[in-house]
Design a protein around this nucleic acid. Structure first.
Lengths: 205, 205
DNA sequence: ACCTGAACACCGTTCAAGT
DNA sequence: ACCTGAACACCGTTCAAGT
């Protein structure tokens, strides 16, 4: 049945399917997307120019997702922490995409509005524009690093490799089990950093 | 000429070639490695079990590289900064490998000795073991995030998307051009963090 | 306008055949 | 023990052929 009255495919449906497969399996092929949409692989090329086009669309969509999560109606500490957490969580959902997302952060879409909003909050709170940019950049680094750390194995320091003695052994063994490490690290770093920049307001560099 | 007196291939030579290709091109195929070594693709399978085996070997090697770069004969601030910078630089050389490296940090090799050494320095300087682990974890997050940030385009906020007005426009325009942004951000974050943990020594949580 | 089937170059991998 | 060539299943992509 070629040429149905209502098209079986659309760019959006293709990107949806690819993203779903990516979330579920960690990757996708043209063939798997086609199978998902009950279509032959070659059909996709009527709507997208190729796999890289699909990847671009996914990146676009993830960036929009990210930008929409930011609430800037809080004081500057909360705004910074909220953005950092939202970004880390969003990035952590798609660990395979972290590098991809970081490669072209602004440019495309809502990413820049996030930055603009944050900058406004910071300047309003007494940061110079230069310092605001530094702080925002640092928050980004924390979010990205935290996201990757979140995808690491729970025990960054497994028993087998630590042994029973040494400074680490005891401390590591004291810690709760699952997923806690990356969260603790992230919150610790984020809080330390945000606190540390508080004195930067209204002072000369 | 099958079966030369001295083998043309070895596991080491294969990994060397793959790593070189990865550095140069950002990826490698079994075929490209074989061509580099003037051999047919199937020959490789006498020395490695497959492409994933080569990737594992590369990861192994990068981790060893990382561990060897750490000097722990400094005071704790310098030790932390040195490790962070060494890790960021090493990771930045292989942006494609960052996720891969972060996935299995310890386990394999010298990575754990880096952590042990750092922990020793920190505890000697008055940190509890628990806090030392948190600090080391945070340093890791900073290094990883900083490495990815380093691979981002120089202008995280390109002119085209910023416009002429707004808080950002002026600050962005004031900044020097190339590669400076990521470095500034990294050093800023690193210094802020290291300073912020100084008061943690010899105090109760 | 949109789906299809055949075809192409390429990929990783296996394995019997050579020496 | 180690390299080779043929073969396999799979990948992304193109394009003439259908309606």
């Amino acid at each position: 049945m070629p040429r149905p009255t209502t098209p079986k495919l659309s760019r959006e449906r293709i990107v949806d399917a690819a993203l779903a497969l990516y979330e579920a399996e960690g990757n996708f092929t043209i063939g798997s997307v086609a199978r998902e949409l009950e279509v032959r692989p070659s059909s996709l090329y009527n709507h997208v120019s190729g796999k890289s086009d699909i990847l671009d669309a996914i990146r676009q969509r993830l960036h929009d997702d990210l930008a929409s999560k930011v609430n800037v109606d809080a004081d500057w500490q909360d705004a910074l922490c909220a953005v950092a957490r939202a970004q880390r969580d969003a990035l952590a959902r798609y660990p395979w995409a972290i590098t991809m997302l970081a490669q072209s952060p602004a440019q495309l879409d809502g990413a820049i509005t996030t930055v603009e909003n944050l900058a406004t909050v910071l300047v309003r709170s007494g940061f110079t524009a230069d310092r605001a940019l530094l702080v925002i950049g640092a928050i980004d680094v924390i979010a990205i690093g935290g996201a990757i750390d979140l995808t690491s194995p729970d025990e960054l320091f497994p028993e087998s490799v630590i042994g029973d003695a040494g400074e680490l052994a005891h401390a590591v063994r004291r810690r709760g089990a699952t997923g806690a490490r990356a969260n603790d690290t992230f919150e610790f770093l984020l809080n330390q950093f945000v606190q540390s920049v508080a004195p930067m307001r209204h002072t000369k560099l």
